[in-house]
Design a binder for these strands. Structure first.
Lengths: 118, 118
DNA sequence: CTGGATCCCATCGGATACTG
DNA sequence: CAGTATCCGATGGGATCCAG
C-alpha cells in the first residue's frame, strides 16, 4: 500500500478500469439504479428497496460512492435523524452507459435461452 | 450451490448484472481490449501483451469467456501446438458500450485531478 | 433512524510446479 | 507451445451486536 494507490486505492491504469473500480462491487449498481429511479431516498428507504443488503454494506457502499462523487449525502439535523441520498451529475451521466451495457447483457441472455431451439 | 445458479453461476437478476458478471474480474477487460486491437492472437502473444497475468489466470479467463460466447478458441492440430483467440460478434458488440464507460471514467479522472486548481 | 465495530468465511487472484 | 494441479494469501461480503 505504499505505491501511488495511496489516495483512493484505485489503479489509474485506464479510464475503463477506473470506471469499473468505481461502479464495481455487489451493491453499487443496485444503489445507483434505485437512486436513479427515485431521485432522492432516505437511508431506510434505500435499504428496503435493495432487499438483502445489510446496514454495513449499504453505509459502506454509500460512503465510497460519495467519495467518488457519485452520490450526494444530505443530512438534516433533526430528531429523529434524517439523511437523504441522491445521484450527482456524474452519477446520472453514468446511466446511459449502463443502459447500453444492459442492452448488450439482454442480448446475451436471450442467446443463452435460445440455444436449444432450431 | 443448489439454486438456479447451477448452469453458469451467474445470477440472472437483471441484464446489467448479467453483463457485469460476464466482463467482471481482473483480467477480462484487458483481454477483450487486446483481442479487439489485434483481431486474433495466440496464447503466448496474449500473455505477453497483458503483462503480469499468469498462465492460470489467462487460461481460466479465456475458458470462461469462451463459455459466455465472448471469445472464440481455434486450435490447430500441429506440433508445436497453436491456438488462436479472437472476439466473437457478441464480444465486438460489447466494445462500444465499453468505450462509453471509458469516456465517463475519463471525465471522472479529470475531475479528481483538477480538485486543487481554480 | 442512521449508522459503526468486530469477527468470520467464501471467493478470487496468484505463485509455483508439472504435463501433453 | 499451451495449458493444468495444487496450494495459499489477500480481499470482499456478511452476520451480529453496539452507538449517537
Amino acid at each position: 500500500m505504499n505505491r501511488e494507490e495511496t489516495e483512493s486505492k484505485v489503479k489509474n491504469d485506464c479510464p475503463l478500469t477506473y470506471a469499473f473500480n468505481i461502479i464495481g462491487g455487489k451493491w453499487r449498481l443496485p444503489i445507483i439504479w434505485a437512486l436513479w429511479q427515485n431521485k432522492t431516498l432516505r437511508y431506510n428507504e434505500l435499504k428496503r428497496r435493495i432487499h438483502g443488503i445489510t446496514n454495513m454494506m449499504l453505509s459502506q457502499a454509500l460512503k465510497e460512492m460519495e467519495d467518488y462523487g457519485l452520490v450526494v449525502r444530505k443530512q438534516y439535523m433533526e430528531i429523529p435523524p434524517r439523511v437523504e441520498y441522491s445521484l450527482t451529475e456524474a452519477g446520472m451521466e453514468l446511466v446511459p452507459s449502463l443502459h447500453s451495457l444492459a442492452k448488450w447483457g439482454k442480448q446475451m441472455q436471450n442467446k443463452r435461452n435460445s440455444i436449444g431451439e432450431a
